[in-house]
Nucleic acid binder design. Structure first.
Lengths: 336, 336
DNA sequence: CTGTTAGCGCTTTCAC
DNA sequence: GTGAAAGCGCTAACAG
């Protein structure tokens, strides 16, 4: 049923009439090989269906040809998409992509990170909220490449790939300003988080670019949850002169805002426009469909992958770290 | 910054004053070791923080201590949850869990499966829709354990872990019958798929258990999509004597059914009750919240994990294959 | 441009 | 109950 045993590099060498070394170098390209020999070897590799054993290679090189994506929130559909982006780029290069879940506590994350380091993964995308500096330091100290999805650039803590939250939110608010809205409330999430801060900055930026002042009484913030959104929205709708549009920190908050609007007997977008952020699946399933900003999860995954490839190629590269910022896309549906 | 080199089995052996062999056996338990020696070794292992190198072990044993979950639809939140279940059980045992995406074509799946086999993963949970018998056969032939999430039991194709779709749907319909509904329409998905068939069977079973006849004119089926649901719902609502409840094949179809009900100017659940299936995130975010059936994704993951553990322990176990069927849970919200 | 050879860190006969 | 030693399949000095 299966092949007799398994074809190894020695089989290829024998059949191609060259040494094992040569086969190895044809495959790795780490030293020049005559075109004729190279062609012959590749031919045999193909005929025999030879694929190098990752364990053996790993044992020799100390690398595993594997990268991991560490997440804390399994239910966030952002991550699977990102994993798909990683895989699209990395799998053809022979990498295995693992998605590791570190729910809740920092201890979980400790053990996940340790496990990954023990396995000598070549790269880690750290997307777990509970990640701390010591995790970053451990990872880079172990020689693995690290990519984070937010935070400040620090040479000890690897590269960063993130979406342009500020730009995305600015686009959203500009979209409303374009449509003539002026009293635009911000139902923002937690300002202690990077997204909270960056999205607020985008809100301000849009007004500035339109030469308008921000009415600070229309700016609220709270937890990034449905009830957080309802709370913020209620506060704004109860004002003497309520806003005509509610820009929310994320889609969940927008759902809460919709709840609040409905409570007041108002209609969307007739009486008040509502916008979300993230473009979770539900945002297209609600009625009215939620105008929101799409986070380019897939593209972020690909960008992370490319960073890994660069890092692994240019061994011991420059000490510098990079930040890649990807644009976000406005998705206009019926809620505005 | 990092430890000097890395602690290997030889370091442990030296410090414990025993041979490498003994350390290995203490760790694997594959041959008796005196309690005294064992304690000493374990002590040193702990002191030194020794963790065996997976590559070296893999090279020797031909196993990788890794299992993979292969999916085709990245956006389905079911899979990440399942992955979390797998990981909860397998990570403490030292396994790495990889989630592999095989979007679309069968060729993608071919290459993913080949990659996984090349890497000698110990087990694969095949959740990709495009999977065919040849993939199953390749996997088992390569010596990896296979778990599928649906289909018929076949000794060549590994074990099956699945949710009890029939029971779940029967519970759902019984819930409506309990509430006095009698004209209950079924807006089912594709009958060429296992879920389509099983859920239809559940619908019938509930009526049978209540001693009632199924009105075949109230049974429709179509694609498992929002528009499929709208189509089926419209057809039923246009009947001379329309049903008072619409039981849908999945949550997406239920969203379509809600669209259709709204079009007709009817209210939910006042005029007509609507139910979904799967409990996707959106079902709690809609208004009214969707009554649905929750698929125990996490538990399914754990069940798969346990199967792997069994298979890997009892080497060359009985030729028999197992089917594990897990109960589903009715989630009652506002739509009924 | 090509080949010989010494291990990478572990498991597992085989021997005591 | 314990050890010595032979590799697993590959890469990378080191030599031509």
């Amino acid at each position: 049923m299966s092949k007799e045993s398994r074809v190894g590099i020695a089989d290829v060498a024998a059949r191609a009439g060259v040494s094992i070394t040569t086969v190895s170098h044809v495959l790795s390209g780490r030293r020049p090989v005559s075109d004729r020999t190279k062609a012959k070897v590749l031919q045999v590799v193909d005929d025999l269906g030879y694929r190098p054993d990752p364990s053996a290679r790993g044992l020799r090189t100390g690398r595993s040809q594997a990268v991991a994506l560490v997440v804390s929130d399994v239910t966030n559909p952002f991550y699977p998409l990102m994993a798909a982006g990683l895989q699209e780029v990395l799998q053809p290069e022979g990498f295995l992509i693992s998605v590791c879940v570190a729910q809740g506590t920092t201890q979980d994350l400790d053990s996940v990170v340790r496990h990954l380091i023990d396995r000598r993964v070549d790269g880690i995308v750290m997307a777990a909220l509970s990640a701390e500096e010591r995790h970053f330091a451990d990872i880079t100290a172990a020689g693995a490449s690290l990519v984070r999805l937010s935070g400040d650039l620090d040479p000890r803590f690897g590269d960063i790939v993130r979406a342009d939250d500020t730009g995305g939110m600015a686009d959203m608010v500009a979209h409303l300003l374009d449509r003539g809205y002026r009293r635009i409330g911000l139902v923002n999430g937690d300002l202690n988080t990077p997204p909270g801060r960056l999205r607020l900055a985008g809100y301000r930026r849009a007004f500035r670019e339109f030469g308008l002042e921000v009415d600070e009484s229309l700016v609220t913030s709270g937890p990034f949850t449905r009830s957080g959104g309802a709370l913020g929205a209620r506060a704004l709708l109860d004002l003497d002169e309520p806003p005509r549009a509610l820009v929310c920190g994320n889609d969940l908050m927008a759902v809460g805002a919709l709840d609040a609007v409905r409570e007041k007997g108002l209609s969307v977008p007739g009486d008040v426009a509502v916008t979300g952020y993230d473009d979770i699946e539900a945002s297209s399933l609600l009625s009215p469909g939620l105008t929101t900003v799409h986070n380019p999860a897939f593209e972020i995954g690909r960008a992370c992958a490319r960073i890994f490839l660069d890092r692994l190629a240019g061994e011991a590269s420059d000490g510098g770290v990079r930040e890649v910022v990807l644009p976000q896309k406005l998705i206009i549906r019926e809620s505005t």
